[in-house]
Amino acid sequence: MRLISYQPQVSPWTSFDRLSSLRDLLDSAFQLASPGPQTGRGWAPALDIYEDADHVTVKLEAAGLKKEDFDISLHDDNLTVSGERKSETEEREGESFRSERFFGQFSRTVTLPAPVKADGVTATYADGVLTVTLPKAEEAKPRKIEVNVK
């Protein structure tokens, strides 16, 4: 399965860990040194893939968008989800002194684990998670074969 590179925006840590201010400092130092998720092609939301007998489900974590901001396309068994998170900062009055969120365009493409029927694809956006449900093509569904044991 081919997957487009993913660059996580945040890293896990424990609540008993070091001072977060120090971590922030280190993070900001590394962001200066290496191309961050925002450079080049934009940011990359986390993507999960699930599969059951009848469906392939792809979930994309992208908080604070509108459902119209997403664009979903299917070419053979390659699913592409792209979109744009629009910045509202320009319209804001006052001072902004911490900006960790990413804005702008993103695009993720995955090769699905099974052939799907293009006409039955549905998508919902709730709690900041886009869920794309793709029904499997008939030939990809598991078949029950009766075996007569003599």
């Binding site: 945040v10 896990p12 840590w13 971590r23 992208a62």
Partner: peptide, 23 residues
């Protein structure tokens, strides 16, 4: 274990606004 969500902080005369990403 917890992860640290990304935050934007704005300030104006009336106070502060925090935007925290928790998808």
């Amino acid at each position: 274990n917890f992860i640290v969500p990304a935050v934007n902080i704005h300030q104006n005369g009336d106070g502060y606004t925090l935007e925290v990403e928790m998808p």
